[in-house]
């Protein structure tokens, strides 16, 4: 464990909590892509299958459970409790265009052709594109509430910090996980445009982020 990974995990947790509390307190999921949240729940489900078979640390186990519970709780808020406020019209990204290539690639490019390893690889590839429906929805509606942009900021920051974690682990431990690193770079690249808007619009105190 290093400071980059720990702060990355904290950012990830903060992002998930920001989103959950935003929906819970505003009793609305307007502007939130349910599809992205479904994809994140799928990412955690396929990645944390070793939750009961491989004990790594208390921290690892606790965080996995917390991420799974919050992911499914957020999905249930969007699709059940506050489904009247779910804007399915704007959440129109075709996720099959993500799932099929990601599933195909996880069968082609993996470390070992075993169910657990392929599902882990699937979760890594899927996570790098899971935010696209949400970013697409923001471009479609042309705006995002500031709290949603803070959620996206921490979510983008977490994987950026993981990139620093992998640089550190390569330097310190000679460790290099090609699949995770390449996917992490792709994932972070998708946030670059958002980061630019976030720093130039939202942090200037303009509150809502409106796209040009």
């Amino acid at each position: 464990m290093n400071i980059f990974r720990l702060s990355g995990d904290v950012c990830h947790l903060v992002a998930i909590i920001i989103l959950f509390l935003k929906i819970w307190r505003s009793k609305s999921c307007a502007g939130i892509s349910g599809k992205s949240q479904l994809l994140f729940a799928l990412v955690f489900t396929t990645r944390y299958l070793d939750l009961f078979t491989a004990f790594i640390s208390i921290y690892n186990t606790v965080m996995k459970v917390v991420f799974l519970v919050l992911a499914y709780a957020t999905v249930s808020l969007i699709y059940f409790r506050f489904r009247k406020s779910y804007d399915s019209e704007s959440d129109s990204f075709r996720v099959e265009f993500l799932l099929v290539p990601v599933a195909g690639l996880s069968f082609l490019e993996n470390y070992s052709f075993t169910p657990l390893e392929i599902l882990w690889t699937f979760s890594i590839y899927l996570e790098s594109v899971a935010i696209l429906p949400q970013l697409f929805m923001i471009t479609k509606t042309g705006e995002a509430e500031s709290i949603t942009t803070h959620y996206l900021f921490f979510l983008g920051l977490y994987r950026t910090l993981y990139l620093a974690n992998w640089v550190w682990r390569y330097h310190e431990e000679g460790f290099f996980d090609q699949i995770a690193v390449v996917s992490g770079v792709v994932q972070t690249i998708f946030y670059c445009d958002f980061f630019y808007l976030y720093f130039t619009r939202v942090l200037r105190g303009s509150g809502k982020m409106t796209l040009p």
Binding site: N60, E173, F176
Partner: peptide, 10 residues
């Protein structure tokens, strides 16, 4: 470098 899986990561 040595390739290890990131299974100890979240």
């Amino acid at each position: 470098g040595l390739q290890k899986s990131t299974k100890d990561e979240l």
